[in-house]
Design a protein around this nucleic acid. Structure first.
Lengths: 340, 340
DNA sequence: AAGACGTTTGCAATCGATTGTTGCATGTGT
DNA sequence: ACACATGCAACAATCGATTGCAAACGTCTT
């Protein structure tokens, strides 16, 4: 009687379990992996023993040996906007879908909110030896860094814009087309004094602005006004309120760079007694689930986030398997609701 | 000339770097850790070499040896609501703040969305050997499981309700009080036919309902109607629309279990031409940043998510350090805006 | 009875780092 | 010139698993 059977001593590693079972560690390892190499009886005996003691092999050690971590890094680079927050609804919506797709495939998720202060931030993540692959949500202003790393690090997929000739694999919508659609929608609504609300540092948003310009040009209108806005939700509200205050009725159509911005804009307009869409038309971008639940419901450009997330994950798996996966550019779609 | 200097061979471990530098692996390890035990010159020489080759030590191996992972698991148990999604704005808001607090302290985040099918889901996470601690967002219907694990696993903090005598450490608001506040607000607005919209399986939400009952009882009103609603955002909208359709004007005050539910309710009421707050009053719960940006702006019960997240993290660090940290119950606050 | 073969199990190397101990040169004091 | 302290780096054990290879055993064939 070596132990109180009612309160079994905690077992810390397979060696202890092996001693308890009177076999070698190798056998325990194989037994717990349910390999047919070990006798069915011993195998089940060891598994029962492990269960009885609540023993589970150390994953860190296993993964070190296996050289495969089953962990994917999901990284949000906040280059141009240090105060932007992970709680941004777009990040979160896409993160939710990524989480679904990854967990379904047996992968865990390591989340990093990175403020790229050191210029090797991405190398540090990619090189940590803890990740089988990396998903970047947004290119921010880190295009060069991403390209540099993509030259030698394959299992990485980025949500964002695809520039001709770029190395890194992106999934995203045709942002320029999206901006164009928004512009057309506003113009069809009879708007002529357009503005873009957002900021054009990240390639994605720049493309949206350019698309809006295309639409304006095609209709013979001057280039839309650019209303720069911080993306951090706390300052965003102030920025937008200030813009609305300043522009008054110089503008009659606002293409917002995101649904969140659009919602804030509608709110700020309401505060000043300006009606949407009667006085001013507003379009969003993203088609977050929320866009349909606001009052008035948001007219917006759909990014089909769920599809995009799946595309990112499957491209990543391709690349992990060693195959090349091309960038995916999805077609944006105008979702006409109440604001434009 | 053994190597092309322009394209240095990739170095995979400290042993290779050691050979390159003509020292032992121990010295390299200490040099990279910047320990004074190795001569300043050699130290800098090795560091320069590492930098030149873009070498970074394997974290998996390091952490295995150190027995400290600097990773915290953030887990959302979806016990009662399999289809609830990570993109739930409340999860995401709190996750954002947790991410801030944890990354500031040098910890990474491992995200798990768990559908507790196997009853040892929490043991599996806690025991993986990959985590220094665990934060649970919500108790779901897993109270017993959490208690069981908390008996032997210390570094765990849970967002949720505190029941007298419970072992696991929670941070949260006094949900019953919150429900009470919501009830009082509705009653002060002259509402007498109250309803609770949500579902009372998770302890947090049950408490909110009980608090609402308290307020009703104190005002001599019958117990509020219970309108069960799925928490998965896709079905939630339908559920709510159905409820609104069914109750018509039998109800004149709705206390929603969350801001998201409240927003959907306001939307569904608007669809049926019922005005908020003229015809029906609605209160939310959480005070998400969005609640202030809706039209009409949401009257809600504040959870001060940011403060709560900080409290969770600091309690967790206490427990990692081996100290006991007591549960925290914050006072909810009524935020009066436009819907009640 | 010897050899061939199949089934189980043990041994020991390995993944890539960290760190206590030991040993070898120096330098210092007398 | 000898004893002793000091600084620096090498050696080897360790973290906790996995896995190729070899050995032990029993069974079957000839």
């Amino acid at each position: 009687m070596s132990d109180t059977p009612s309160a079994p001593a905690r077992i810390r590693n397979i060696a202890e379990l092996a001693r308890l079972a009177g076999v070698s560690t190798g056998t325990v390892s194989r037994a717990l992996a349910d390999k047919s190499l070990v006798n069915k009886d011993t195998r089940e005996r060891i598994q029962a023993l492990a269960r009885a003691h609540g023993f589970r092999p150390n994953q860190m050690a296993r993964r070190l040996r296996i050289q495969e971590t089953k962990v994917i890094g999901v990284v949000v680079p906040l280059g141009h906007e240090q105060r932007q927050h992970l709680s941004d609804p777009f990040f979160m919506a896409i993160l939710g879908h990524l989480a679904d797709a990854l967990t379904e495939n047996g992968y865990d998720i390591m989340l990093s909110r990175v403020i790229p202060d050191a210029d090797d931030w991405l190398e540090r993540i990619v090189d940590s030896g803890m990740l089988d692959g990396v998903l970047l949500i947004g290119q921010s202003n880190q295009f060069e860094t991403i390209e540099r790393v993509a030259q030698w690090y394959r299992p990485m997929v980025v949500w964002g814009s695809h520039r001709p000739g770029q190395i890194h694999c992106t999934v995203g919508v045709d942002n320029r087309k999206g901006g164009h659609l928004a512009g057309e929608c506003l113009i069809r609504a009879g708007r002529t004094r357009l503005a873009f609300m957002g900021e054009a540092v990240a390639p994605e948003l720049k493309d949206r602005y350019d698309g809006l310009c295309d639409a304006a040009a095609a209709a013979g209108l001057p280039p839309p006004l650019k209303l720069d806005t911080h993306l951090a939700s706390d300052v965003m509200a102030e920025d937008i309120a200030a813009h609305i205050h300043r522009i008054g009725t110089d503008v009659d159509g606002i293409a917002a760079a995101s649904d969140l911005i659009a919602m804030h804009a509608v709110r700020a307009l309401a505060d000043r007694g300006i009606r949407v869409p009667e006085d001013i038309s507003v379009t969003g971008f993203d088609d977050l689930p929320l866009a349909e639940q606001t009052i008035p419901r948001l007219t917006t450009i759909s990014q089909s986030i769920a599809v995009g997330a799946r595309a990112m994950v499957s491209a990543l798996f391709e690349r992990i398997a060693g195959n090349d996966a091309a960038s995916v550019e999805m077609a944006p779609q105008l979702i006409r609701r109440d604001t434009a």
